[in-house]
Nucleic acid binder design. Structure first.
Lengths: 338, 338
DNA sequence: CTGAAAGCGCTTACAG
DNA sequence: CTGAAAGCGCTTACAG
């Protein structure tokens, strides 16, 4: 075993008895432009194939400055929502001739910073970032250094950056309206976190409640991030038993899952009469005894848009700020109407 | 916006009034070896910090041949099992100073080939591959070219390669024994696919049935990969209604999920009296009305081992073949004994 | 039509 | 103690 010796342009040049420049021309389809002899071109191509030549893309990058690589910072690639995003990123980037490099921040600014640094060191041409709390400084620095960057899933209002995300306010508003329409008294379950997408989902819920004249019945449950399971358990129990709440809207798929585990422990009598809805479904939603409606995001469209934006930045074609908000879709659970 | 100009060694050299070589020495902690003047070293370090210098890792790679990058080919990074693997890979590789580049093959040899190629072109030092069906040629080629490679999750017996995977035979054997121990008549649900890990799981099931003197009752259900849902539906129904099968062992988490959807459609009366067990649990398992036992893989250990092996290959320290099989753990569903 | 040369950013013997 | 030079693999004006 050991490191395979790579076949270089020089090897082909030697084998074909020409210069490396000529090989480069031929292999890059510039034979015409440089009016390379057809015979020669064929010979070069043949040798290249024989030797199984693979262009050394980082040298290429070195030479003309770009690596055709985009760094993607997710909060956790093992989260079903983000692993789906990762997959679509991979596919769409490949279509555009780019490779993506992933990093997970775990919603932690320090980790995010080090991931961004390592990505930059790897020579990425641009970044797609799911910013976490306290990421202002790091993102601000990138923007100042004119690094092509687009935020994804969330934005940082205090910093002028392009972003692609769900119209969170509208999605939460619509979902709340649906829950109210079936005569329920819904609470929103969220985190106490300064993340734009969560805040917008909270606002959407509150506005919907207010517009229905039910401001007084509105309540947002803030799970304790250091003890999700326990805080869910106690907040949910309290809401149901003491405040007659009979519907919940969950702000993220992780929150939904946490609450489902809590409900499971409380038993059928409790959750059977609840109406539930959550962002970003996972298969688990389909098997919970009580049907769960879902707000689904147009992931493919979001990813395409984000890549499109970074790439135009990389090429410096259009440097204006792009703020893209896409609409979510409220999907009634196939589990049946309640 | 636009491409930020990178700060290079030259910039620092100019700013500090020394040669690039000296800067390189200092920044690589070789001041001592080259007995660099302490004052000079400090000045260089200071300038480097001021200019926010980031070494251009691909140039580094160019110079000394290695990129400190490992390519990881999964079948689908959006599959919960593999997204978990991806996350652990990312973390463990970082600890070892490596970056991982992911690619998904979708269990398709053609796609796998192109993913491997693109990874090689990106200059990875080695590869960790989850081989798909018909991957013999591609993997064989890599081995022949002495590319450092280790297979993951499955092996290809006909090709001498290192691998890290579950002891699939033992895991399936043990699971089947457990199902038999509670007086059940279990069937195995699998795909008709020539993948080593699936075949071993099948053998494990069959051997356990044989050893219990129940060869005649053993049956393997092969789902049709072109129509998973329908084939599951009909095979499961038939098994339960006509063959008195009352327990199922699912060969992969995707199969489990497919079957759970099928059961859901059949209704409680059907699945309530079944005993179920599957490889690689996902949260969905926890919410299916009938408890599902699980065979869990030591993912972290597997990933560490795989990385360890490729890296020793990359450094050409130990070129012997490594065949690592780790044991799975049978976990009774917390849903309760049945 | 083809080759020699420079240069991308880096490291490392080799001189001095 | 420090600098000039070569070379990793590639591309691209520039000569001829």
């Amino acid at each position: 075993m050991g490191v395979f010796k790579k076949v270089s342009l020089k090897d082909i040049a030697k084998a074909a008895g020409v210069s490396t420049a000529l090989v480069s021309f031929v292999l890059n389809g510039k034979s015409a432009r440089y009016r390379v002899n057809e015979e020669t071109a064929k010979r070069v191509l043949k040798k290249a194939r024989e030797l199984d030549y693979r262009p050394h893309s980082s040298s290429k990058g070195l030479r003309y400055g770009l690596s055709k690589t985009i760094g993607v910072v997710l909060s956790d690639i093992a989260n079903p929502f983000f692993s789906q995003v990762a997959r679509v990123m991979e596919n769409e980037a490949a279509k555009l001739g780019y490779t993506v490099l992933f990093g997970s921040s775990d919603e932690n600014a320090g980790l995010m910073n080090s991931v961004v640094n390592s990505l930059m060191n790897k020579g990425v041409d641009g970044l797609v970032i799911v910013p976490c709390e306290h990421a202002e400084e790091a993102i601000g620095g990138l923007v100042q250094n004119r690094v092509p960057v687009v935020l994804f899933d969330r934005s940082i209002p205090s910093i002028p950056t392009s972003y692609v995300m769900l119209n969170n306010h509208a999605a939460a508003y619509a979902a709340t309206k649906r829950l109210l329409a079936v005569g329920k008294k819904p609470y929103l379950v969220a985190y106490d976190i300064r993340l734009n997408h969560i805040e917008e989902r909270i606002r959407g819920y509150q506005d919907a409640m207010a517009n229905a004249g039910k401001s007084k019945q509105a309540r947002v449950l803030y799970l304790d991030r250091s003890d999700l399971q326990m805080s869910a358990q106690s907040l949910l129990t309290e809401s149901i038993e003491e405040e007659e709440c009979d519907a919940f809207l969950f702000a993220t798929n992780k929150i939904t899952l946490t609450c489902l585990y809590a409900f499971k422990r409380m038993g059928h009598e409790v959750f059977d009469r609840l109406k539930l809805a959550g962002f970003d479904a996972t298969p688990a939603f389909d098997f919970f005894p009580t049907p769960i409606d879902r707000i689904s995001q147009p992931v493919e469209q979001m990813v395409k848009k984000a890549l499109e934006i970074v790439i135009t930045y990389i090429h410096q074609e259009d440097v204006s700020l792009k703020k893209v908000m896409l609409e979510g879709k409220y999907v009634e659970s196939p589990g049946g109407a309640r």
